[in-house]
Amino acid sequence: MTSWLLDGLVVFMLLATAVSVLASRSLFRAVVMFIAFGMLMALAWVRLQAPDIALAEAAIGAGLTGVLLLDAVAHFRRGPDKERGGAS
């Protein structure tokens, strides 16, 4: 029973973060939600008894994708013609 509650919670959170990735107005917020989604995916893989995929998802989905996307968001904020400027 407890495990069903846990699985239900993980699935609900997966769907909720997936919706909020698209629904959040600010791009930064969307990316943060996407990182949270990646962490929840890692949790889901553990529940699916796939620890290999959970390891890869935690390292890639949460770590590398997050850095890449946040970097891109910062670039879009600065604008196309002043990325050498101070404001980051």
Partner: peptide
């Protein structure tokens, strides 16, 4: 569990 992909990502 482990291997080339995870190690490469880290």
């Amino acid at each position: 569990p482990g291997g080339a992909f995870q190690a490469g990502a880290v």
